[in-house]
């Protein structure tokens, strides 16, 4: 039974991936990619990675899908010169790709037995972090440096996106396409209060159950973008002071707690055992805000000159 489900999931994913890559119609390819992301989310559950499944559903299928559809809508107007690759290149590419896939498959079938694992170390060191979910403990305590750098990558990417704006647009608002459809307005009034609670709960519960700051922040970003789309909220000017503050609040508090670790616990990003959990909550609270705002603005794109907004 469960093997049948796995076979079906794997076959569907490969089919959708093939469609994404080879399908003739661009919009159908993007739709196939979003479905692929959602199936991949189910596969994460099947391989025992619930936290990754939530991230994939939120980011892989959800936000990336929205980003790609928006890009497709803007590119439709430009001439899409599709010059096919020559037959020779296609054959070479197929052979190279097949070679890489076969090599990886061979590696998968000849992995070392027994598999290396950090589970015993993780479980032995879980109690001092004050958390019950070892994935959250990895993100917030043992590998907190990775998580701090990941937030900085988000900020850098947002700066990169802003910096492709023409000079005249600098400091202005990103373009918002508004759709004042009655049903959408209703959804945008009804859903955000629920979504905000779910988003914050997703972060809070990640201490002991699957969830996390990134997954929760994504939900907040989606709620904001929904309200913007319905014309109920505005995107901020990228020069706005409160926006800049919201963006750096998370990484700044993270960095401050990290530096305090030198004094309190002897290492960068080390927490004294007695207050580990409160410190992690202190880091996560502004982090949700920063993640939500930066994700929403990354999807919204660079600012546009005033008249075009």
């Amino acid at each position: 039974m469960s093997l049948g489900l796995d076979l079906l999931l794997a076959a569907l994913m490969l089919g959708l991936a093939g469609w994404t890559v080879l399908g003739r119609d661009m919009f159908a390819a993007i739709a196939a990619f979003i479905a692929y992301g959602l199936l991949l989310g189910i596969v994460w559950v099947r391989v025992g990675a619930l936290d990754v499944a939530l991230t994939e559903a939120a980011v892989g299928g959800g936000v990336t899908g929205g980003l790609l559809i928006a890009a497709w809508a803007r590119l439709r107007a430009t001439a899409m010169v599709e010059r096919k690759a020559g037959a020779g290149l296609a054959v070479l590419a197929a052979l190279a790709s097949l070679g890489v896939a076969v090599l990886l498959a061979a590696v998968v079938l000849h992995l070392p037995q027994p598999a290396p694992t950090l589970v015993p170390e993780a479980m032995a060191n879980l109690a001092p972090t004050g958390l019950g979910n070892p994935v959250s403990a990895t993100l917030m305590a043992w590998r907190a440096l990775d998580t701090l750098l990941e937030k900085l990558v988000l900020l850098l990417a947002l700066l990169g996106i802003w910096s492709v704006a023409p000079d005249a647009a600098w400091g202005a608002r990103p373009a918002a396409s508004v759709d004042r459809d009655g049903a959408l307005t209703f959804l945008a009034q009804f859903l955000p209060p629920v979504g905000v609670v779910v988003g914050i709960y997703t972060v809070w519960t990640s201490a002991d159950a699957p969830g996390g700051a990134f997954q929760g922040g994504t939900i907040l970003a989606a709620m904001w973008l929904l309200a913007v789309r319905a014309g109920l909220a505005d995107l901020p000017r990228v020069a706005s002071r409160w926006l800049r503050l919201a963006l750096v609040a998370g990484p700044a508090v993270f960095l401050a707690v990290g530096l305090a670790g030198f004094v309190l616990a002897g290492h960068f990003l080390a927490y004294p055992e007695a207050v580990a959990k409160p410190l992690i909550v202190l880091i996560e609270a502004p982090m949700i805000l920063s993640i939500g705002v930066s994700l929403a603005l990354m999807v919204a794109g660079p600012p546009v000159p005033k008249g075009d907004a």
Binding site: A10, V43, V102, L104, A105, V108, L109
Partner: peptide, 11 residues
């Protein structure tokens, strides 16, 4: 799923 991942890389 390992084999599936390998195939996805190829595709």
């Amino acid at each position: 799923y390992g084999l599936c991942g390998a195939a996805l890389v190829g595709i």
